[in-house]
Design a protein around this nucleic acid. Structure first.
Lengths: 208, 208
DNA sequence: TATAATCTGTTGCATTTGCAACATCCTTTT
DNA sequence: AAAAGGATGTTGCAAATGCAACAGATTATA
């Protein structure tokens, strides 16, 4: 039985002579792509990780989203907006599958093995993307910084137990939860004082 | 050439003797489904519309999301959380396709016409869902109520021009943007006073 | 190793938002 | 047509958050 949730398992299988697809390697810090025009671009991380970065009017770098193995991203998922600029940057040495999405069922030629394989992986990739986005909306829908933090910690503790390391730095976490960094740190201090959590940098232990 | 973005166009085509699928009709106000346990439920609206509703601790009814023709929803997209209760309610007479999702490629029997058809619609349905969720996150990421409102109005004006009717009531819009209703009305009043918009109930005209 | 740059935590203060209460308007029901 | 229930708009006030500035810790770079 084939595992259809890890795309890296089949990358070596198919010949890369599909005309619509590229597999590229990136070093840390390199730009994987930008969201500027509509090329129906669709990307999947095969190995490594990347950040979706925006630069605000002051030139501050803001990490909006983080992608890791099997994450999908691309212009195709965005309503491109001229007054916002998105850049996807490799966070480490990474391998990325890039292709132009028209219809997953539309093949470049009669028997392209890439398209066959992608068709089998596509459903799981998109469904976990939707689940992820839904969770994020659920978090952003909370009124207070405290509720956002505890909600996010709960999600992580389901995966990793009471003690875990955040996938973000404190600064990045504030961006992810869309709250002011210093206010968030203030709230973390209160949670520590009230013995709800232990925290040091991005290491968290839940005490409840 | 087949249009793969409107699922209602093929509903009459296939025989409904697929063991995994149901097509149900609902009257206004009826409960289509709840998100309580994990049955991998996946739903598509064929006609009509529905609200994703939550009831807070005071029993207040809060519309969190709105689904219309070709919208997908279901437990499968949620990390079910015991302290939150979701109900999907028909907003009008509606037809809904419900099935248990295992793998879109897994057929109930050798040549089930439903699975063949669904496979062809699935990609467009999920991609527009992702785009929608991404836009919502983009809105919720804005710091001020004013920016959320203007951001949302911009999205709508791309589709409908400078004058449009919101798909929500004012109360529902506040829930959608996750702001306090009275604060939002206050902000709308300021936008009107400053002649950025005209507004009466859920009819908006942008003046810029 | 020294220096620079970035990240983290703290605090005071201004602004925004949420909450509550109320009046008015609109819609639905009887 | 009257009454009831719900939605909308307004406002005062309290609470939460953003902003700014700074000090100390950590990491990256020369």
């Amino acid at each position: 039985m084939k595992n259809n949730s890890d795309i890296s398992s089949f990358i070596s299988d198919f010949s890369t002579n599909c005309s619509k697809v590229q597999i590229k390697k990136f070093n840390k810090g390199e730009t994987i792509t930008t969201f500027l025009v509509n090329r129906n671009q669709f990307c999947v991380i095969i190995s490594g990780s990347a950040d979706l970065v925006r630069y605000d009017y002051n030139g501050n770098r803001i990490v909006t989203e983080r992608f890791s193995k099997n994450s999908i991203f691309g212009e195709i998922f965005y309503h491109i907006n001229t007054n916002s600029e998105f850049v996807v940057e490799a966070k480490e040495k990474s391998e990325v599958l890039l292709f132009s999405y028209d219809d997953i069922n539309e093949k470049c030629k009669a028997n392209c093995p890439f398209h066959e394989q992608l068709k089998s992986f596509f459903p799981n990739l998109v469904i976990s993307k939707i689940t992820e986005l839904t969770s994020r909306i659920e978090l952003l829908s909370r009124r207070t910084t405290r509720d956002k933090l505890l909600g996010y910690f709960n999600l992580l503790s389901k995966q990793h137990g009471k003690s875990f390391t955040l996938p973000f730095s404190i600064t990045e976490l504030a961006n992810y939860l869309v709250v002011d960094r210093s206010s968030m740190t203030r709230e973390l201090s209160i949670l520590k004082k009230d013995e709800f959590i232990k925290q040091e940098r991005n290491k968290i232990t839940l005490l409840y």
